[in-house]
Every structure is written in structure tokens, then in C-alpha cells.
Design a binder for these strands. Structure first.
Length: 912
RNA sequence: GGGCGGUUAGCUCAGUUGGUUAGAGCGCCUCGCUUACACCGAGGAAGUCACUGGUUCGAGUCCAGUACCGCCCACCA
């Protein structure tokens, strides 16, 4: 008796169509107010330790890609798990203003409208930016919802909101006060396309073939003070245009070729400047000519050398990388144009000695791909040394853990070799640096919203001060994210309650950009590690292993995927395929597998709901299965659910989310569905059994399924919520699975597991024999079995199940093998399954297939003999028996005995 | 130039502290619509665990080296 109708089972449509219900489920969660740690529907234990994940904020101008979906899935998984454990759980959503990246996008948009940054001006440009992001913002948030992120939307933060602004001002003020922020003229990475400096991390070293030119400089005749036409020094350079800014020629101190030249002067062409030949051991004698021209204002190495030798630093390129201020005809020319002209002129003078192709690294702008031009600028820097020390101490002491662990080495290396961080950007979209300058050039840093009232140094009034026009590197505000979002610098309730945060989950590619800076700034400003655990995810690549990019056109749109297969399938696929820190390939096959799994679960639940015995009321509250009526099958089902629960708990503790989904996939599909449900059908469909027995079986299924749905909820929140709603609940259960209790680990029943495992082995062996012998699949055949005495009662209890699952009828049991063989026909199919032996009685029509059966037995025998030889070999080795642990030796002995028995029986059957 | 990771079935990947016969999904082959599911069920084939050497009673697992692929860091102009 079931309530199955043609289309639905207790509100569950026959077909699994995720797009039909996922949106509605999300609305129910919102309505129940379960996301916030203190929401009306949250069932958090106020005394439990809070669990906090502050979402790495996606760029507001972007659209959701698979990487975001993966990140949200993993973070949401941890969040939901903690919530079901009744911890006050905060998953805080956010958006990043993405400084330079956003300007890059907007610049292209306004270009299509015929405008430029300059034509609009700062104020109108920023207005246009706010307008733009107000549009993209809703799109981004909608996508985050679609994935199922259980965010506390009431705490949504933006890196350009008032929380961030205050935190940025205060953070910079304190860093400056503590001597960790300073303003100086230094060589910075200048992007001529973006017209701003960028940090070292944003310069991408790109291998390309350039050219190496050899150029001759004439030495100055000390007597005349004029260039000597015959005495020259040849230098090798890849950047002839920087000749104009040369202030020295360097050679190695021990280079005999140039020993006499050191201390003399050389004439720089065009600018007609005389510069010294200096000795410095940074010069590689074997490279080029062994002599190198030094342009301190336009090259990192030369800058260092310039500082060592106190050389003048002459800037010859402007913000657009055009030659400037040299007083030569090259002024106003772009750097590459100037290069060509300079080379031509040098050639004409006879001072261009050689030209050859040269493999080298070009520093290109991460954003615009322009070749970065090192330039001297007066900008703000963060002194990273002391901050890095503390960050290292945090991971070395274990107060913060990085997973997977091998990233610790990378972390250590980067932080121990860190350079100061240039945080000034000559852009408009971002937090303006809270530094004011008076006409005398004194700098005043203020955390006050309206700026300082007077110059800190000379006391000039605010009206005479000008704020630094520059803004902060976008990663500066990002670096404050774990605490700016919670109300720091105020002693805010959220800050007190949820900081330090629990887990920072992010992509390994931004370990330095972001994680290191959060750690450094967090430790200095809050005096605590901003998170206990850093969990690094790998990149999502396409099915061929290529990085997804818009230009390659291999980007997968998560929204389209979810529309087609559901958010649950996407989440499962992303989590199932991932190993922490390793990139994963993503293709339609993984998604399909996840979708099929969801479909399987859907149908299994429909079966359970529909298989309710008529003696149980449709709206019955949940009951414990009656222990007195549980058979081995039922105890096996519960025991396996307990085993899966333990596996999932272990995997969660280890952040091994892929292991967790594997446990659930196998537990639900290969155990619960393949064997649990099939075994249960035997009793549920047997009208001759007392009602209590069938009820116990059904409650067993409910119990196990309920457990699986809870365990799976963090990964596949929508379908589990939907299905759970169709199951009976305890009076103590909430309305919604999302706030239901995480299952406790039930007791294993190893005896029942052994019994049912033996059944499974036997059924498999019987099926295998039938299939190999090409027995008519639908036919019921008589089977005789010889079962060891110990398994006798279990066998009797499970007899109807064996009959049904192996199409064995009548099924006779014999107490000994001899009795079995005496009773069964010689041409029957012999089956050996562990300690159980069986014979399938085939009729005359099937007798021909006995040959195939014989071949199967021959193969089994060969295998068994091989293993037996191996086992005996091991045991005859005295070293093994004396050195291996006793239980291993014992296991080997048992194995040997088993194999020997099996071999003997197979030989017997084969008439040998 | 350093450092890190990867190399396991045709493909994508698991493989906990070394321990019986190395697993899964997809794909492939043979069957099957048995009243949850064909997005399914049953059965099957398929792997010198990149290579070389070492440690060990025993190595996919530990050590050393090699090759190839990928990533990160790095001031040969």
C-alpha cells in the first residue's frame, strides 16, 4: 500500500527538476531568518564558539565565474556545517570596489561613449562609477544567492562603504603613527597605460625576445677634457633610449679589461654629459661586454647601484613614457620611437657596434599589459619588515594554520624576502589617502573624516592644507577586510563576537596579494591573527586543463549551468573534484555525474516516502525503528549510515571536502540505494509479515535517509531541504533542514555488517555465475547453498532477500558441502563466495553454457592459486614472520587458510 | 637561477601513519524496461602506480637521483 500517484509523492514530483524549486527554497530560508547568527529562525547555541567566514569579496564589476561559485560553495559548506552544529554562524557577504580593475572596465565603457577619464574630470568620473556599480552590484548579489550561499545579508559590506572608509583612515593613521607608513621618493613600477604606479605583485614578468645592442661611449681625455675618438668603452643595453638618463658606466672591480678605466669619465652622447666609470661587483663580467650603462631613474638594478655610488638620478621619461627634459631633439617622442631614432643616430656616428636578438623578461602590467616603466616618484610606502615578522610568527606558532601545508614554504619564502609596499595609486576610484600637505611640504596624516584641523608640524590651518590626490592600492582596504567588516576600529559587538574569524578560504593565487596583507595589517592593528585557518583552493580550469579566460572563450557561465543542472549539481561537482590547493579541471562530465547523483537521491527518497506501510499514518510523527523487529538488513543499513557519518565527520575535521563527498556518494548510492533499499523491499512487500516488522523496516529507511540528507545538506542544500520536507520529523526538529541538528555518530553493528556482507558476496557471486553462463536473465533457478554453521541463523533470516536478489528459487540450504554436492546436479553452476559455497541448478536447455561456467571456474582457480602462492611465499619467509607485527602475520595466516580452502574447493568442482 | 606541485585504468581523479588481491566517476563490452530512478539496474574487460637506484620482511606510499608538465619567486643590463 503506497500513496504513489502518477506525478507526485507527497509533494515530490516524479522528475527531479532543480530549477523548479531551488529559488523557492532560498526564499523560505530568507523568510525563516536562518542565515544570521542571531536570526529568528537560527537555532544557534549562544554559548557555543562562533564560527565566522568573511567572504573574499568578488569584484563588483565582474560577473560570477566558476571560481566564485567554487569559493562560495566551499565557504557555504563550512558555514552550513557549523550552523547545524548549532554554533552561532556568520557568513558575511561582500563586494570589492576593485580600484584599478574597475577603472579599467569603466574607461572602456566611457570610451564607447566618446569620453575619457580626463574629459569627464575626477568628480563626474566618480559619479559615473557609482552609477555603473549600482547596476553591476545587483547582478553580482543575485548570482551569489543563486549558488545558495547562506549569507547574512543584513551585514553585507562593500570595500567602499563607510565601514571600510573609517577603517582605512584609522589604519593608515596608526601605521603612520607607528612609523610603518612613510612617504619618500623612490623608484616605483609605473604603468604608462594606466598612468599609475602598481605594486611589485602587479608586474608580470613576461618572457619575450628583445634585442641587445652594443654601444660605444667615448672616454674623456683627461688632458683636454674632450672625448677621445679612439679610447672607447662598449656597453650592452636592451634599452638604448635610457642613454639620455645615464649617469655612470659600471664594470666589475676585478675585470682586468677595464681596470684602467675605472675612475675615468665617459661622454654620454646626445646629452653630452660626462659620467664616471665605476666599479661594482653586481656587474656580470660574462654578460655582454662586461660594462653596463647605469640609468638610476629608470631601472631597478641601476637604481640600487645609483644609491650605492651616490649617482645623480635623472628622469628622462614622463607619465606617458615619452622622452622629456633632456634638451635633445628626442624630447616629446614616445620611448620606442626615441629608441629607433637614437639607434639610427648612433649608427650614423659609428658608435652602434652590434645588435642581436635577446631572450629577456619584460615586466608587464597585470591590468593593461603595458611594459612597466620604472620611475622616480614621491609616494607612500608601508614598511613591511616588522609586519612580516609577526605574520611569520603567527604561522610558525600554529596560531594560524595554512592548508594545504606545503604552501607554508611559499609563504615563508615570500615573507622573509618581502620588500616595502607602495600603496599610492594615481587613480580616482578608491580610498583617497588621508594625508594633507601644507605649503611648506609638511605631511599630516589624519583619521578624522574631514581631515586635520591644522598642519601637525607648523600649525597652518586646514584651509591651507591640500589632501594627497592619490588613492590607496585596492589591496590596502582589502587587507583590512576581516575586521573592517565587523566594525573595527570601534569596539563593536560584531567585532568582539566574531573576530578573529574562523576560516579564510581563497584562491592560492592571491596568497601574497591578499592573505599576507590581511595577516600583516590584522596583526598590527588588532593585535590578533585575523583567522585561525587559511584554506587555499585551486584554480578551476577547463576540461583540457587550460585556464579559463574570456579571450580564450572557454569560460563556463555558472548561471547557465545551474539553470540546466541545478545549483546543487554544480556545487557537488566543484567540491567533489577538488583537492585543496590543486587546480581542477571542470567539464560537462563531472557535472553530469553530480546531477545523476542528485537524481538518484531524489528517486530514492520518492521510493521511501511512497513505501510507507499503510499502518503508519501519512502525517505520523517520526518514530524510532523498533529494535525488537530489526533484521540483519535493517541493522546493516543503520550501521552503514553510522559509518558514513563518522567518515564525513573525519573529512570535515580535515577540511577534506572531496573525501566527504566521496563518502556520501558511495554511502548513498552503492550502499543505501543498491543494497539497503533492495533489501528493504523484500520485507516491505511481504504481506505475510506482521505490521510491526514492516514498520520497523520503513522507519529504518527513514532514519538512514534522514541522516544522509543532513550530512549532504552543506554540499547540496536545495535538494536535501526539499526532500527532507517530505520525511517525517521529530517533534524537536525545526521546520527547515538548514537549521536541523548535525547527526551524531550512531553505533556500528559489526555482526550485522558481517552477515550482510556475506549475503552481498553470495548474491554477487550467484549473479556473476548466471551472467557468465548466459542464463536467461529473468529465469528463477533452484540454488543450493552450503553455509558454515556460524552463518546459519543469519542465512535463514535473510533467505527471502537472497532469493529475490539472486533469482534463486527454490533456495535449499545444506549443512555440509558433501550434502550440497550430493543433492545438486553435476552440471550446475558452482559458486564460491568466501566461506559459502553454492550450486545453481541449471536445466538441460542451459547445459551447453556449462562450458562458459567451467572457464569462469578455471579463471577463479588460477587467480586463487596465484594469491595462495604469494601468501605462502610470504609466510615461509622467516624474516616476515619474525619482524612483521603479529596481527599482520596472523592476517596472512588466515588469508592463506582461506585461499587454500578455496583452491581445494575449486579443484574439486573442476574434477581435479 | 632557486623553490613548490603534478606524473596511478582510454579520460578526470582518490589513495590517511608503509601491511592481504591499488579504488571511484565517466567511457568501453555483454545483458536487462524486476512496481524509486534508463539521469537506471546486473555483470565484465581494463593499471610494470613516469623512470633509475636505495631503505625495509614488505614500497603507489619513505629516501636519493633523472625525465616531462604546471605554478611561484628571482636585479644578467
Amino acid at each position: 500500500m503506497t500513496e504513489t500517484t502518477d506525478t507526485t509523492t507527497k509533494g515530490l514530483p516524479k522528475a527531479y527538476r532543480p530549477a523548479d524549486f531551488e529559488g523557492a527554497i532560498y526564499e523560505r530560508w530568507l523568510a525563516a531568518d536562518v542565515f544570521a547568527p542571531d536570526g529568528a529562525g537560527s537555532r544557534a547555541d549562544p554559548d557555543a564558539e562562533p564560527f565566522t567566514i568573511i567572504q573574499p569579496p568578488p569584484n563588483i564589476t565582474g560577473s560570477l565565474h566558476l571560481g566564485h561559485a567554487q569559493r562560495t560553495a566551499v565557504e557555504d559548506l563550512m558555514t552550513r556545517h557549523a550552523r547545524m552544529l548549532r554554533r552561532p554562524t556568520l557568513f558575511l557577504p561582500g563586494l570589492d570596489h576593485a580600484g584599478i580593475a574597475a577603472q579599467f572596465v569603466l574607461d572602456r565603457i566611457i570610451a564607447a561613449e566618446g569620453e575619457t577619464r580626463q574629459s569627464l574630470g575626477r568628480e563626474r568620473y566618480l559619479e559615473r562609477m557609482w552609477q555603473f556599480i549600482n547596476e553591476t552590484r545587483e547582478v553580482m548579489l543575485g548570482q551569489q544567492r543563486r549558488v545558495g550561499g547562506s549569507f547574512d545579508w543584513s551585514r553585507l559590506r562593500f570595500t567602499m562603504d563607510e565601514f571600510s572608509s573609517r577603517a582605512v583612515r584609522e589604519a593608515f593613521f596608526r601605521l603612520h603613527r607607528d612609523g610603518l607608513a612613510y612617504r619618500t621618493e623612490a623608484l616605483v613600477n609605473w604603468c604608462p597605460g594606466c598612468r599609475t604606479s602598481v605594486s611589485d605583485l602587479e608586474v608580470i614578468p613576461t618572457p619575450e625576445t628583445g634585442k641587445l645592442w652594443t654601444i660605444r661611449y667615448h672616454l674623456i681625455d683627461a688632458a683636454t677634457g674632450q672625448p677621445d675618438p679612439d679610447a672607447t668603452i662598449a656597453v650592452a643595453t636592451t634599452r638604448p633610449e635610457t642613454i639620455l638618463g645615464d649617469t655612470a658606466v659600471a664594470v666589475h672591480p676585478d675585470d682586468p679589461r677595464y681596470g684602467d678605466f675605472v675612475g675615468r669619465n665617459a661622454r654620454i652622447p646626445f646629452v653630452e654629459r660626462d659620467v664616471p666609470v665605476i666599479a661594482d661587483d653586481a656587474v656580470e663580467r660574462d654578460f655582454g661586454t662586461g660594462a653596463v650603462k647605469i640609468t638610476p631613474a629608470h631601472d631597478n638594478d641601476d637604481y640600487e647601484m645609483g644609491r650605492r655610488h651616490d649617482l645623480p638620478m635623472i628622469t628622462v621619461l614622463d607619465d606617458t613614457a615619452a622622452v622629456t627634459g633632456t634638451g635633445t631633439p628626442f624630447d616629446g617622442l614616445d620611448r620606442y620611437e626615441a629608441r629607433e631614432r637614437i639607434l639610427a643616430d648612433l649608427a650614423a656616428r659609428g658608435d652602434l657596434v652590434a645588435e642581436r636578438p635577446h631572450e629577456m623578461l619584460f615586466g608587464r602590467c597585470q591590468r593593461s599589459n603595458d611594459v612597466i616603466e620604472p620611475r622616480l616618484k614621491t609616494q607612500w610606502f608601508i614598511r613591511t619588515g616588522p609586519l612580516a615578522e609577526r605574520a611569520l610568527a603567527a604561522t610558525r606558532s600554529g596560531r594560524t594554520r595554512i592548508l594545504p601545508e606545503h604552501f607554508v614554504k611559499v609563504w615563508e619564502h615570500w615573507l622573509t624576502n618581502i620588500r616595502d609596499w607602495n600603496v599610492s595609486r594615481q587613480l580616482w576610484w578608491g580610498h583617497q589617502i588621508p594625508a594633507w600637505y601644507c605649503p611648506d611640504g609638511h605631511a599630516t596624516v589624519s583619521a578624522a573624516e574631514g581631515g586635520p584641523s591644522a598642519c601637525d608640524v607648523c600649525g597652518r590651518p586646514a584651509s591651507e592644507l591640500t589632501q594627497d590626490p592619490d588613492i590607496f592600492d585596492t589591496w590596502f582596504s582589502s587587507g583590512l577586510w576581516p575586521f573592517s567588516t565587523l566594525g573595527w576600529p570601534d569596539d563593536a559587538p560584531d567585532y568582539r563576537r566574531f573576530y578573529p574569524t574562523s576560516v579564510m578560504e581563497t584562491a592560492h593565487e592571491i596568497l601574497f596579494f591578499w592573505v599576507a596583507r590581511m595577516m600583516m595589517l590584522g596583526l598590527h592593528l588588532t593585535d590578533r591573527e585575523p583567522f585561525h585557518t587559511v584554506y587555499l583552493s585551486g584554480l578551476i580550469r577547463d576540461a583540457e586543463g587550460l585556464k579559463m579566460s574570456k579571450t580564450k572563450g572557454n569560460v563556463v557561465d555558472p548561471l547557465a549551468v545551474m539553470e540546466e543542472s541545478g545549483a546543487d549539481a554544480l556545487r557537488f561537482a566543484l567540491i567533489h573534484g577538488a583537492t585543496p590547493g590543486l587546480d581542477q579541471r571542470f567539464g560537462p562530465r563531472k557535472l553530469e555525474s553530480a546531477r545523476n547523483f542528485a537524481n538518484k537521491l531524489w528517486n530514492a527518497t520518492r521510493f521511501v516516502v511512497g513505501a510507507r506501510p499503510a499502518t503508519i499514518e501519512a502525517n505520523s510523527p517520526r518514530l524510532q525503528p523498533n529494535a525488537a523487529h530489526l533484521g540483519a538488513a535493517e541493522r546493516w543499513i543503520l550501521s552503514r549510515a553510522a559509518a558514513t557519518t563518522a567518515d564525513v565527520d573525519r573529512a570535515m575535521a580535515d577540511y577534506a571536502f572531496g573525501d566527504m563527498t566521496r563518502s556520501l556518494f558511495d554511502g548513498i548510492w552503492s550502499e543505501f540505494c543498491d543494497w539497503g533499499l533492495e533489501l528493504a523491499k523484500v520485507r516491505l512487500g511481504d504481506d505475510t509479515l506482521p505490521a510491526e516488522v514492516r514498520e520497523a523496516t520503513w522507519w529504518t529507511l527513514v532514519e538512514a535517509l534522514d541522516t544522509y540528507l543532513r550530512l549532504l545538506h552543506p554540499v547540496m542544500p536545495f535538494i536535501t531541504e526539499q526532500l527532507w520536507g517530505a520525511l517525517p520529523h521529530w517533534a524537536t526538529d525545526p521546520e527547515l533542514l538548514i537549521v536541523a541538528r548535525w547527526p551524531g555518530v550512531g553505533e556500528r553493528d559489526l555482526a550485522a555488517e558481517a552477515e550482510v556482507d556475506a549475503l552481498i558476496d553470495l548474491v554477487r557471486a550467484l549473479r556473476n555465475a548466471r551472467a557468465e553462463a548466459h542464463v536467461e536473465p529473468a529465469s528463477w533457478l533452484p540454488v543450493g547453498v552450503a553455509v558454515p554453521e556460524a552463518l546459519g541463523p543469519a542465512f535463514e533470516a535473510l533467505r527471502p532477500a537472497i532469493e529475490r536478489l539472486a533469482r534463486a528459487r527454490p533456495l535449499e540450504r545444506y549443512l555440509t558441502r558433501d550434502a550440497l554436492h550430493g543433492a545438486m546436479p553435476d552440471h550446475g553452476l558452482a559458486v564460491i563466495a568466501g566461506e559459502v559455497e553454492a550450486v545453481i541448478g541449471i536445466n538441460e536447455g542451459n547445459a551447453a553454457s556449462a562450458d562458459a561456467d567451467r572457464a569462469r571456474l578455471e579463471m577463479e582457480l588460477a587467480d586463487a592459486e596465484g594469491f595462495l602462492d604469494a601468501a605462502r611465499g610470504r609466510l615461509s619467509n622467516e624474516a616476515f614472520t619474525s619482524k612483521a607485527p603479529p596481527q599482520v602475520v596472523e592476517g596472512a595466516r588466515a588469508r592463506e587458510a582461506e585461499l587454500a580452502d578455496q583452491v581445494e574447493r575449486l579443484r574439486e568442482r573442476l574434477g581435479r
